[in-house]
Amino acid sequence: MKIDHEIPVEAGQKFQVDAFKEADALGIANLFYAIYGADYPFETYYIPEKIIAENRCGNIHSVVARTPGGDIIAHGAIFRSSAPYPNLYEIGQYIVLKNYRDSFAAYKINQYIAETLVKAVNPDGLFGEAVCNHTTTQKASALIGMKDMALEVALMPPETYQREKNGCDRVSCLIQFRSYHDRPHTIFVPPAYRREIEFAADGPDFTRTLLDSIEPIPPDISSKYTTAFLSFAGVVRTNVEAAGSDIAAIIDDIERQASAKRMEVLQFFLNLAMPWSGKVVEIFRKKGFFSGGYVPRWFDTDAILMQKNQTDPNFESIVLYSPSAATIKEFVQSDWARTQKHRGVTPL
């Protein structure tokens, strides 16, 4: 049954960080209601039975900070989200009751996930989408070995954070990634983004063979893709596992639908295992898309994110914690500026 009111939790209690138990579900739902009211976009977290079901089937692996009496004062999780590859989990859903914000609950949950939970779940990788209106989440992810990869520009509406009084512009998100079990493979690098991909894929976590993608798109292949309209965020997210000769028409169709639904952000994750990914990227670039960066293991194989914003993003509002994240922002902003030149607009 959906939670529709807050059950008060006494401040100052001791707590223990632990993996999810079914008896925690009501406390988790209460926690989400206490922080977000009825406005959190994922209904699952208001319904204890759904929290249990999703944890049972492995779509969510919750970690909680639990008081001796069973109250839940903080939550974090790894969970299956937008990535098509089921053994790539997202890390997030961190929330802490206001009375416990000066405790170390979030930090301890973060450490528990990295040191204990991943051994039980055994994901190939974790990715996070850390908000860029402050650096706390980015730093928390870096603490557990996650590396900066890509930037989703102006992804989330400010209303998402209104209750927290942080938001003004749409909030960008830094994609961070940690590999646990790499899958060495060949990726076909769009010439326009070789520098960006080499920068992000550098390091001991990845074994990749980078080939220039120069092949033409085969005329006899149809695109294989899935699209999700994330209405709460105004985001249309499309995973293009394979792009064929129909890809330009598909982009146009999704853009039309997005416009009709007043979506603010279009995202396409393109599979870099396609030998013709370079030509596909060129189509996106001609249509005003710019790169967000390299996203490992999105399809099991790696991806590149191409994105477009209906409203000019405010890059000045993006707050980043590290030099590598700043470099990624420079890449992304520079590519966005290119799209403005195509529009005949001089970027600020």
Partner: peptide, 10 residues
């Protein structure tokens, strides 16, 4: 410093 720095230092 922020809420992540404090436990790290501690």
């Amino acid at each position: 410093l922020d809420s992540i720095d404090m436990p790290v230092i501690a």
